[in-house]
Simulated scan of single mutants.
Amino acid sequence: MITKIETVAVIGAGYMGGGIAQSLAAAGMKVVLADVSPEATRAALTRLLREAGEFEAQGLFAAGSAAAIEANLSIADSIEEAVRTVDFVEEVVPEVLAIKHEVFKRICAAARPDAIIGTNTSTLPVHTLAPAVTNPERFLTVHFSNPAPFIPGVELVCGTATDRALIPVVKDMLKRAGRNSAEVADTPGFVLNRLQYVLLKEANSIVEEGIASPKDVDVIVRSTFGFRLPFFGPFAIADMAGLDVYANCFKTFEDAYGDRMATPELLKGLVAEGKFGAKTGEGFTGKHAPEKLAKLVAYRNNAYARMAQLLEELGPSPLVEDD
């Protein structure tokens, strides 16, 4: 079995696939890119090399990244040519099951039998895609986020047949590319989009009910709880606020909205045990010594102050400027 990924094929050269190819090539891996036609692939390569130079000039890529991408990124005239000798194949074609199945069949017919095959699907479960993959033990979801050159998180999803030994190999590849990875279960939407779409759904309900405008909802999200999210996830944020506080607030939501906003059982259990988060030293994120909690508070305060400074330095987004 492959123990280290050195060569990669990215199938699909749009903005998502192209960004993944840039990221892996910048990290020193040899990457071959293929799209729907040789002409489309060549056009994508021209764009990606131009963008890499622009990003480096703007300080968005580290010095030397454009040269590394140019040295490590090549193209192939077909899917078959691209995948023939590589260690890892990342499929990044449209989110249509029939298209993905067709592409996987072509990949499997030409790739090495031990090549690891990943899909960048954002919502389709592994079990709906694996039937099109020969030797499905080498198949898993490796889900980057858009824009791929700049978003560090990647979801990893195994199917029932996936060999667990693949996980550290793929994680090592991602780590070398400066990416954070998290393994989640094989369900529709995984974690990222399940959370993201729930937020969008509730935001739409708020607008439809006349509670706030889309503009004002966006202001609240980005300047309140969204302001915290680059540093902490929802469980850490709740621990710092106090789980007893959250439990009391959920009572208000449950009274107003019914079961869909009822107090989660996990939260109820922690509160019943007297585990209120940072104030008691134990909560969603485990048990923490007082000195660690003091460091956490200091980090939080510094992080939020620095974020405010960065936003002031960057200035408002064009959407805000239009107001």
Rank of each mutant, 00 (worst) to 15 (best):
Gly14Ser: 05
Gly17Cys: 11
Gly18Gln: 13
Ile20Gln: 14
Ala21Asn: 02
Gln22His: 11
Ala26Leu: 06
Gly28Gln: 01
Met29Lys: 14
Lys30Asp: 03
Leu33His: 05
Ser37Glu: 03
Glu39His: 01
Ala40Asp: 05
Leu49Ala: 09
Gly53Trp: 04
Glu56Val: 06
Leu60Ala: 13
Ser65Thr: 14
Ala66Gln: 03
Ala67Lys: 14
Glu80Gly: 13
Glu80Gln: 09
Ala82Met: 03
Glu91His: 11
Glu91Pro: 11
Val96Asp: 07
Lys100Ile: 06
Val103Gly: 05
Lys105Phe: 01
Arg106Ser: 13
Arg112Ala: 01
Asn120Gly: 15
Pro136Thr: 03
Glu137Ile: 00
Arg138Lys: 13
Thr141Trp: 00
Val142Leu: 10
Phe150Gly: 12
Pro152Lys: 14
Gly153Arg: 10
Thr160Trp: 00
Ile167Phe: 11
Ile167Thr: 12
Pro168Ala: 12
Leu174Tyr: 03
Ala177His: 01
Gly178Lys: 09
Arg179Pro: 08
Pro188His: 06
Leu195Gly: 01
Tyr197Gln: 03
Tyr197His: 09
Leu199Gln: 02
Leu200Phe: 10
Glu209Met: 01
Val217Ile: 14
Ile220Ala: 15
Ile220Phe: 14
Ser223Cys: 05
Asp239Tyr: 01
Ala247Asn: 00
Thr252Asn: 08
Phe253Glu: 04
Asp259Phe: 02
Leu266Tyr: 02
Leu270Gln: 10
Leu270Gly: 09
Glu273Leu: 09
Ala278Leu: 12
Thr280Ile: 10
Lys287Gln: 14
Ala289Arg: 12
Ala289Val: 12
Glu291Leu: 10
Ala298Ser: 15
Tyr304His: 02
Gln309Phe: 04
Gly315Arg: 05
Ser317Thr: 15
Val320Trp: 07
Asp322Cys: 02
